[in-house]
Amino acid sequence: MKEQTLSQGTPKGISKFSDPLVVTLVASLCCLLWASAFPTIKLGYIAFGIMPEDTASKFVFAGYRFILAGLLLLILFSLTGKGKPKLTGRQLAGLSGLGLAQTGLQYMFFYVGISHTTGVKGSIMNATATFFSVVLAHFLYKNDKLSKNKIIGCLLGFVGVIIVNFQSNLLELSFSFKGEGFIIVAAFIFSITAIYAKRLTATIDVLIVTGASLFTGGLLLILLGLLLGGSVTHFTLASTGYLAYLVILSSAAFCLWNMLLKYNKVGKVSVYNFLIPVFGALLSALLLGETVMELKNLAALLLVSIGIYLVNRVSAR
């Protein structure tokens, strides 16, 4: 799942990041990294010995990831030579609130939900964030109303989400509120908080917004997990590797995506979002041995991907 929403980008000068081939390769890489979080989190649970019912330890695991990712981005900002950021009390409060909600609250639901569903279903369910954002934007922005393509895209996406929650015979529902339901709740929280994140990036460097949000939310997750009796102690080469990879993907994917948005129109880049559920399902099948080659899964992937494409295609025009 994406950790932050970026501000609206416009072309700024000539760069290799504006080359069509580079855009395709880098955007696809970002989507691949974000999608790989689904199976990697589940593998991390196994490596650290975190049982499905141990919610507190899941929070600690998530907290480690986001605190380290946040620190990495803040260090990166300091290396850019922009100096120490001057933030007002109101801006600091806004960053703290964003971190508590977008990183803390969202990932409370996400980390619990992903442990109670498959990586294939989780990656598809998480795609609802795109459609929630489209509907919310209709009511909040005068220049971002629902169009015919957006409505069709949202309908196709939600149909895909419904299909993936049926059994293989397409006659019985297979839906758990603590699993698939929590993934949807996390997607909805992200959609709401992303709007506020976009507002903050208008006056604060996007690295600061993201780094501070990840760090603050990660701190909340660790404190809550420890208070509930959770712990993450089985640090082996494998478990540490999974954690390190999650930290790096959260930071690297964001920075690469930001560079694309700096030199390209948003619609040109965001159209690649449809790759996330596709990559997520394929990687879950490859790394976790889950079944993806079922008619319902393939149909859901196709509908969700087309839906996201149609929604973003409007912006590209």
Rank of each mutant, 00 (worst) to 15 (best):
V314A: 06
T240E: 13
I151Y: 01
G83I: 01
T55Y: 15
G217N: 08
S270A: 12
A27S: 09
T240Q: 08
F66C: 00
L43P: 00
I151W: 03
A316N: 09
Y45G: 06
K268F: 14
L95C: 09
V266A: 15
E294M: 05
L105S: 07
K268H: 14
L301M: 05
I67H: 00
N264M: 06
C30V: 03
M293S: 09
S147Y: 03
P277W: 06
N258W: 04
G49T: 00
I208Y: 05
L105A: 07
I162M: 13
I46Y: 07
L286C: 07
A197T: 15
P39R: 03
N297I: 02
I195T: 07
P39E: 08
I41C: 02
S213Q: 15
G181S: 02
L25H: 01
S191A: 05
R313C: 02
S305E: 06
L29Y: 04
T103H: 07
T80Y: 09
L246A: 12
L79E: 06
N312C: 06
K296Y: 11
K148C: 13
I162N: 11
G225Q: 04
F175H: 09
S231Y: 09
E172D: 14
N149C: 03
G181I: 01
R317Y: 00
N149A: 02
G94N: 11
K2G: 15
F77M: 06
M51S: 10
I306W: 02
P85Q: 15
N126Q: 12
T80D: 13
T118N: 04
K296L: 06
L221D: 02
L303M: 00
N169V: 10
N143I: 05
R317A: 01
K148L: 11
T40H: 06
M51P: 01
S147V: 03
E53H: 02
L98S: 00
L207M: 10
Q4G: 15
K178Y: 13
K58H: 04
N264V: 12
F215V: 11
N149K: 04
S239D: 02
F188W: 01
S28Y: 09
E294V: 03
K2M: 12
S270C: 14
N126V: 11
L73K: 04
D54W: 02
L224Q: 11
E294L: 08
A101N: 08
D54S: 00
W34L: 13
Q4I: 15
V266T: 12
K16P: 10
G267L: 08
G113N: 05
